[in-house]
Amino acid sequence: MKRLLYILFVLLLAACSSVDCPVNSIVETIYNVYDSEGNELALSDTLTVTSVRMDGQDTTLLNKLVDKETFNLPISYSHAEDMLMFHFDNGNNNLHVTDTVWIKKDDYPHFESVDCNAIFFHTLTGIRYTRNYIDSIVIKNPSVTYDYQTVHFYFYPKGSL
């Protein structure tokens, strides 16, 4: 009888400890870079992306990316609009160009389990930007979750510095 109670207790514990928290729970946006013909393009100039936090301090989100066709950027949990500074640099002739990108979005909480971290998903509702280096940015998929394969933005630079 004791053995049966022990087996039932172990089975009960095993059944209660099954939590379906996602392994990859990072919520970020994915950008693909294209040329004017619609072909994937590796950035030839160095890209650094910064953002201004609530306390007024800059924070670096992406540091010195070069020769890549895709990049990921985190998204805020509590702002209706994110403001990002895209800094482009050509090391050969020391040219520096900065564009500002504003991303409007709606935030909504996503609940998996009480044992999992709190997560917010987002719906992209608009984008605007300056046009110093950037030709255009197009919203491809407005739903931002922790799906790390869905491209959210098509990024079209004007060209090299």
Rank of each mutant, 00 (worst) to 15 (best):
T60A: 08
S25E: 06
Y31F: 15
T145P: 07
N141E: 15
V144L: 00
E40F: 10
V23Y: 13
P142R: 02
N94F: 14
V144C: 03
N72H: 11
L8P: 03
Y31T: 04
P109R: 09
D107A: 10
V114Y: 15
L11C: 15
Q57V: 04
T125R: 05
L124G: 02
I119W: 07
S136E: 07
V33W: 01
V138D: 12
T60K: 15
E37Y: 13
H110N: 11
D115H: 13
S136D: 15
K68V: 10
D106N: 12
D135K: 11
K64Q: 09
N39A: 06
G126S: 11
D99Y: 06
T46V: 12
I75F: 01
F111L: 09
H110F: 11
T98M: 10
T60I: 14
L13N: 15
V33R: 09
N90W: 00
A14R: 15
F71W: 02
D82P: 02
F88M: 07
I137N: 05
F111Q: 09
L11D: 03
S136C: 06
D147V: 11
S17R: 05
T145K: 02
V144Y: 00
V52I: 15
D147E: 11
I75L: 01
A15T: 14
R128L: 09
I137H: 02
L62D: 01
E28V: 00
Y146V: 04
Y133T: 12
I134A: 07
H96I: 14
I30A: 08
C116Q: 06
A15C: 15
D115T: 07
Y129E: 00
A14W: 07
V114F: 15
I119E: 00
L43T: 08
N72K: 14
D67G: 13
F153G: 04
S78K: 09
A80V: 10
L41I: 03
D55I: 03
M83V: 12
Y77Q: 14
D99W: 03
N39I: 13
V97T: 01
K64W: 06
D20L: 13
